[in-house]
Amino acid sequence: MFAIRRVRDHLDRHHAEPITLSRLAVMAGMSRFHLVRAFRAAYGQTPISYLSQRRIARAQDLLRYANLSVTEVCMIVGYTSLGSFSSRFSELVGESPAAYQRRWADQAHLIPGCHLFMRGVIPQSGRSAGGPDGPSVGA
């Protein structure tokens, strides 16, 4: 159980980075298939689903309070495809990211994106779409 908790904590801390199931399995010391089964038994969903929900929750925060475009938010939270991000966002939230952002635009005092970058709230990283372990999860 400790290994599964370590994987979940890693997903929480590094959700915006490229993450592969292979790398998570190595971290847990088990096969990818066993990791998926054990994670689902512990948390009721696969690591990929958990990561996706974590990224979408972060995207909701940014769309509500930051003056960033949907594309910028997509990339910041770890997606490399705007289409995949929009589809998953709509599936989990019930509306498109743009509609969600418009709905909140009148209610919030938006923080300029440049302030978030300068303060380190949003990392300025040149992420790639994968690595030696294959494509990123949720890309």
Score class of each variant (00 low, 15 high):
residue 83 G to F: 05
residue 111 I to V: 15
residue 49 S to Y: 05
residue 17 E to H: 13
residue 117 F to N: 00
residue 71 T to V: 11
residue 20 T to M: 07
residue 54 R to C: 10
residue 51 L to N: 06
residue 132 P to Q: 07
residue 111 I to H: 05
residue 48 I to C: 09
residue 112 P to N: 06
residue 86 S to N: 11
residue 65 Y to I: 12
residue 101 Q to P: 01
residue 16 A to P: 01
residue 23 R to W: 04
residue 36 V to G: 03
residue 13 R to M: 13
residue 102 R to T: 05
residue 102 R to F: 02
residue 56 I to T: 08
residue 7 V to S: 10
residue 67 N to A: 15
residue 22 S to Q: 08
residue 125 S to H: 04
residue 112 P to E: 08
residue 114 C to M: 01
residue 91 E to S: 13
residue 76 I to H: 02
residue 85 F to L: 11
residue 93 V to Q: 12
residue 133 D to Q: 09
residue 54 R to V: 14
residue 131 G to S: 12
residue 5 R to K: 13
residue 29 G to S: 00
residue 72 E to K: 04
residue 102 R to A: 09
residue 48 I to T: 15
residue 20 T to L: 03
residue 47 P to N: 12
residue 17 E to F: 11
residue 103 R to V: 06
residue 138 G to C: 14
residue 53 Q to W: 10
residue 106 D to C: 05
residue 42 A to K: 00
residue 44 G to L: 04
residue 15 H to M: 10
residue 106 D to G: 14
residue 125 S to A: 10
residue 101 Q to W: 01
residue 12 D to P: 00
residue 82 L to S: 09
residue 112 P to I: 03
residue 24 L to A: 08
residue 69 S to C: 02
residue 28 A to E: 06
residue 114 C to L: 01
residue 100 Y to A: 04
residue 125 S to Y: 01
residue 122 I to P: 03
residue 113 G to M: 03
residue 31 S to A: 02
residue 79 Y to S: 09
residue 125 S to F: 01
residue 21 L to E: 15
residue 40 R to E: 10
residue 110 L to G: 08
residue 97 P to T: 05
residue 30 M to N: 01
residue 113 G to T: 02
residue 46 T to W: 00
residue 46 T to N: 00
residue 40 R to Y: 07
residue 55 R to Y: 12
residue 133 D to F: 09
residue 56 I to L: 14
residue 122 I to F: 03
residue 62 L to D: 14
residue 38 A to G: 01
residue 44 G to W: 04
residue 6 R to D: 09
residue 70 V to T: 14
residue 98 A to C: 01
residue 26 V to R: 15
residue 63 L to W: 09
residue 49 S to F: 07
residue 34 H to G: 00
residue 14 H to R: 12
residue 44 G to P: 02
residue 110 L to M: 13
residue 39 F to T: 04
residue 95 E to Q: 15
residue 18 P to F: 11
residue 58 R to S: 15
residue 66 A to P: 06
residue 39 F to L: 03
residue 74 C to M: 07
residue 24 L to P: 10
residue 13 R to P: 09
residue 104 W to P: 00
residue 49 S to N: 12
residue 17 E to Y: 11
residue 47 P to H: 12
residue 77 V to H: 14
residue 137 V to E: 13
residue 106 D to W: 07
residue 10 H to S: 13
residue 27 M to R: 11
residue 12 D to K: 02
residue 85 F to E: 13
residue 103 R to I: 00
residue 26 V to M: 08
residue 67 N to T: 08
residue 50 Y to K: 09
residue 2 F to D: 14
residue 53 Q to Y: 06
residue 23 R to E: 15
residue 113 G to Y: 05
residue 99 A to T: 06
residue 30 M to Q: 00
residue 21 L to P: 11
residue 121 V to H: 04
residue 97 P to M: 05
residue 120 G to H: 03
residue 87 S to A: 15
